[in-house]
């Protein structure tokens, strides 16, 4: 095991898959000569050349539309959206085309397409560049939505995503590229659609993913100092959603909170809470609470921005509340 950053993990996954399969290529804004806005594809252009690392115009419909077309005829494009906020420009291609074409044409072809998108707030980018709209995309059957919270998962899940024959939205967090974590040497493949217990505990269950995992781990350490042991289930994939580890944990702890960075209304937490109530109602000892973003467009000012985003103390408070 070596410790590497999230950025290195994602970069390694891309490079390993490009080396393994000549059908894999990258396209997006500033992925080539610039080296990627978040430097994930630094060095790729020199190594693979313009044929496999394609700088595109600033035209999200063309980027995702062209990636879909190339995937339909058997290539394996990895399209990068500079930020997930630009996915709204390409919404038709993500939810109306990628998610539906295979079904609508009776399964005549596959769509081996990965869309990498950087999401999340906390970098003072203002309301239009700071969103965590993961739940919107997870709403659509036909699309798979993956969002890792550790470097090892990022590497293993991205490699699996590139090898998958389905369209996958792979959401990374803008503030997590420097997060370091242990990644096994050699081939790392993690199956899409499997949640994972990232920390064991017996007092309550924290269900989370991506940035929420980083915050929840910190909160769990604080809670442990007070003798409260939280079990943390990391969803890793939002669709298809693997509830098994969540339900198994909840049946043990009987108390849970859900931590997500997106807005609470109609969010990931709403889905998880409903599922627990539907599938494990007899095990509920306290109302399940959600920790999420305040219901406002994210402001620029740092203090206001941090006040709107879920924080470690919010998680600790919610955990204590469900344990009352």
């Amino acid at each position: 095991m070596t410790k590497i950053t999230m950025r290195e993990a994602i970069s390694q996954a891309l490079m390993e898959e490009m080396d393994r399969d000549p059908a894999v290529f990258i396209l997006g804004e500033e992925v080539g000569v610039w080296g990627g806005t978040y430097a994930v594809t630094k060095g790729f252009y020199d190594k693979y050349g313009p044929q496999r690392v394609k700088d595109t115009p600033i035209a999200e419909n063309a980027i995702i539309g062209a990636a879909i077309g190339a995937a339909m005829v058997g290539q394996r494009p990895v399209a990068e959206l500079m930020t997930i906020n630009f996915a709204f420009s390409a919404m038709d291609y993500i939810v109306n085309q990628a998610a539906k074409l295979r079904y609508m044409f009776g399964g005549q072809f596959t769509l081996p397409l990965v869309i990498r998108a950087v999401g999340g707030g906390g970098r003072q980018l203002g309301a239009t560049h700071s969103q965590t709209p993961d739940a919107i995309f997870a709403h659509f059957p036909g699309l798979k939505v993956v969002s890792p919270g550790t470097p090892a998962d990022a590497k293993g899940l991205l490699k699996s995503a590139i090898r998958s024959n389905d369209p996958i939205l792979f959401i990374e967090h803008a503030t997590m590229y420097q997060v370091r974590g242990e990644v096994p040497e050699g081939e790392v493949l993690i199956p899409i659609g499997k949640s994972k217990v990232q920390r064991e505990g017996s007092d309550l269950t924290i269900v989370t993913y991506c940035k929420g995992l980083e915050l929840s781990m910190k909160a769990a350490d604080e809670l442990a100092k007070e003798g409260i042991e939280a079990e943390i289930v990391d969803l890793r994939t939002l669709r298809p959603l693997d509830m098994e580890p969540v339900l198994e944990s909840f049946k043990k702890t009987n108390r849970a909170i859900v931590v997500e960075e997106g807005w609470k209304s109609y969010g990931v937490g709403a889905e998880i809470v409903s599922r627990i109530y539907e599938e494990a109602f007899d095990y509920v000892d306290a109302p399940i609470l959600r920790v999420a973003q305040k219901e406002v467009p994210l402001p620029y000012n740092r203090t206001l921005e941090q006040a709107a985003l879920p924080q470690v103390p919010d998680i600790i408070a919610a955990a204590k509340e469900v344990l009352k």
């Binding site: 290529f25 044929q51 419909n61 063309a62 995702i64 539309g65 062209a66 990636a67 879909i68 077309g69 190339a70 995937a71 339909m72 005829v73 058997g74 290539q75 038709d92 291609y93 109306n96 085309q97 074409l101 609508m104 044409f105 005549q108 072809f109």
Partner: peptide, 29 residues
Amino acid sequence: VEKNMWGGHAIVGGHIPIAAGLALGDQYA
């Protein structure tokens, strides 16, 4: 797919970038 006919698309103009993508797939190949 057998007849190399790739749809039939109901969103006005939506298939235009996809067509560019089919051609991109061929160019890449």
